[in-house]
Design a protein around this nucleic acid. Structure first.
Lengths: 375, 375
DNA sequence: ACGCGGCACCGAAACGTTTCAGTCCGCGTT
DNA sequence: AACGCGGACTGAAACGTTTCGGTGCCGCGT
């Protein structure tokens, strides 16, 4: 006997839903005694309709509370006029700003936005990518989760165009659209600023290396140190950190040792907060005993004490650019969605960074002193 | 001559898109030499399919990278399995948490979530409601924008079920589903706590009265004062404040006057931040010179100095409950989506509240002293 | 010999749009 | 008188699913 097949399992026996929920275009047509195609024509202004007819139709639409069914429309049009984005954490104001940027740019061109929150988990992200594909969105913007398996997961989207924002895939051999900032330059600038204050023992807490942006920031850090012939110590580089508690743990570990760094450079806004937490837990005075320099500014960063010095990314602009690149490609104004779009960063100097204490056992060269308003 | 009608304006002359973007169920059928209905049956497990056939179909699905078109599916099914929410500010972690709650509950039942951000503007919100209706979502959760015109805007949704979260419409004559907290009780508790510390001059910065929750918090404040026979002064009640700068302005105004309050009760997390900003700008020491008590806890509130004492709302649970109520109604397990679902709040005592300074010119009764660990 | 019920499959009609190819009419030109 | 043409409107075929009513087939009990 061949293996028995499944029990039929009829979908839902009692799910008969006889109530008509919405007026259709056909209802409108019947109401004014016109044909369906005429209604469609007046709705979209796509063919001649006399003024009288138009008035009657609009009246009927109003009366029947008719709202066109976008599902049917998209099905027919093979276009959903929808963009989708998946971010690792919707409540991170940095990503929220990116979302706003996309939304604003898209709204002007009549696109709507589907938002996914992967919580930094590839499993959830791939769910969203699948969903986006089933919903036939016109384009996707990814801020890939850090445990992105393989990185070329854009394959999962069929031929739906993708652009990456903020975090770039490590291998960019195939031309993929990326929009963000020049992370090596930004990190380089930031660390050079710390060096200019006189710091020599600088540690970095960076994100996971699966994201090229993290690697780039480490690279910028490396270059800044090398340019001043400062030693590069592996134990001052912590990568793979993206959530707050991990950052706190790493920072405590870094700061507990005897030759502790005099400055800490953090690779994201939440890791900066984690580091701040660590500093406070250890009872260290910031910036006197430890300088803190973060990435991804946030709106309430000035409420913290000390007010945090941070590298600001133009989040809104990143979103808008991503949307522009994507939509341009969708509407075939540009051949392929490729290349990197790098936007400028800005070092927001506040007061979490100061020259290191004089009695610090800084072997070797004495650094030059720079303004950097202490306290 | 009758008024000339519009120029025809053909939609988009060059928008011929001959490329087949996605494999359809029909392609799969052809590939395995079966009928469309058989594919559908194996996809949904809705009818008998032999094991062999199933295997071949799955292989073909894999090979063709077939993803079912949810648009067509929803159109046919008259169900989108989609919930939608519109919040006033997506980057406010309170709302982000609510969203997470909805998403988690919904995901378990295979619902997906559409997210809208109204930026506290009715115009944007109504756009979203319209969009939701055109997309035929199965249900909507609203956190209405503060300038909600009229409040019974749920009419705009046709007969799509709605539930309100966090902010309730002021007039709840018609039975509408609401899920949130008992705001009068929460505010009452909070103010009573302040009174128990010895405060007598307590001001409140509340949200707009168009949201009943704001009015309720004021009511709770009022009752707490009345219960202790403390005077209720209109000039210590500021309402209509929901953004940070407005809160700062109001707080400065409140704190600049000679008989300034010794404690400030804020109606939301961002207004609390605004007040904190004001306190810092004025150089007042908190909690010694001014106690601060806020609403809607947020995750990094412990990083601020002082660590803020706040009324915590169970945001995630609010989201989950809202989703539950809505889905129950959608799947007709419950007759109508109505009634209030109130969840418990929690007063997170940290150290932004302390007894007022002794030399304060507090006329009349001396208050009892309570623990409330100062500093 | 017949009926019957479980299994495996198929065809076609929906769902609500858009669009293409007409049709019909009145008017101005050859 | 024939023709062309712009304006106003219509019918029907898609778009990609689900589902309902079939239709065979096979084994079994009477």
């Amino acid at each position: 006997m061949p293996p028995k097949s499944d029990p039929p399992a009829r979908r839902n026996p009692a799910a008969r839903r006889p109530t008509k929920r919405h007026a259709t275009i056909r209802d409108v047509a019947r109401a004014v005694g016109a044909s369906v195609s005429t209604i469609s024509a007046t709705l979209n202004g796509t063919d001649y309709v006399s003024a009288g007819m138009r008035a009657r139709i609009n009246k009927a639409i109003e009366r029947l509370q008719f709202r066109p069914n976008d599902l049917a429309r998209s099905l027919r049009l093979q276009r959903t006029h929808t963009l989708a984005i998946v971010v690792p954490d919707i409540s991170n104001s940095f990503y929220a700003e990116i979302i706003h940027g996309i939304k604003d740019y898209g709204a002007a061109l009549n696109y709507t936005l589907l938002i996914g929150d992967s919580r930094e988990r590839w499993a959830e992200e791939s769910n969203y990518l699948d969903l986006f594909q089933r919903r036939r969105v016109d384009g996707v913007i990814r801020v890939p989760a850090t445990d992105d398996a393989g990185g070329h997961a854009h394959r999962l989207l069929g031929d739906i165009p993708v652009v990456y924002a903020d975090r770039f895939p490590q291998a960019n051999d195939e031309q993929i659209g990326c929009v963000g900032v020049d992370n090596v330059k930004a990190a380089n600038d930031a660390v050079r600023y710390l060096i200019s204050l006189g710091h020599e023992r600088i540690a970095i807490i960076a994100g996971p290396l699966t994201a090229r942006s993290s690697a780039d920031r480490i690279e910028g850090y490396r270059r800044a140190l090398a340019a001043q012939h400062l030693p590069l110590r592996r134990d001052r580089i912590r990568s793979g950190v993206f959530d707050m508690v991990a950052a706190t743990r790493e920072a405590i570990e870094l700061l507990a040792r005897p030759d502790r760094p005099t400055a800490l450079f953090c690779g994201s806004n939440i890791t900066t907060l984690g580091a701040l937490d660590a500093v406070q837990q250890l009872g260290l005075r910031c910036p006197e005993e430890i300088s803190l320099l973060g990435f991804d500014d946030f709106s309430w960063s000035t409420l913290l004490r000390p007010r945090l010095t941070m590298v600001r990314q133009p989040a809104r602009e990143i979103g808008m650019t991503a949307a522009r690149v994507l939509i341009d490609h969708i509407e075939e104004r540009t051949r392929q969605v490729a290349g990197e779009h790098l936007l400028p960063t800005q070092l927001m100097i506040r007061n979490s960074c100061a020259p290191p204490l004089q009695n610090a056992p800084a072997a070797g060269r004495r650094g030059r002193r720079a303004p950097g308003r202490p306290s």
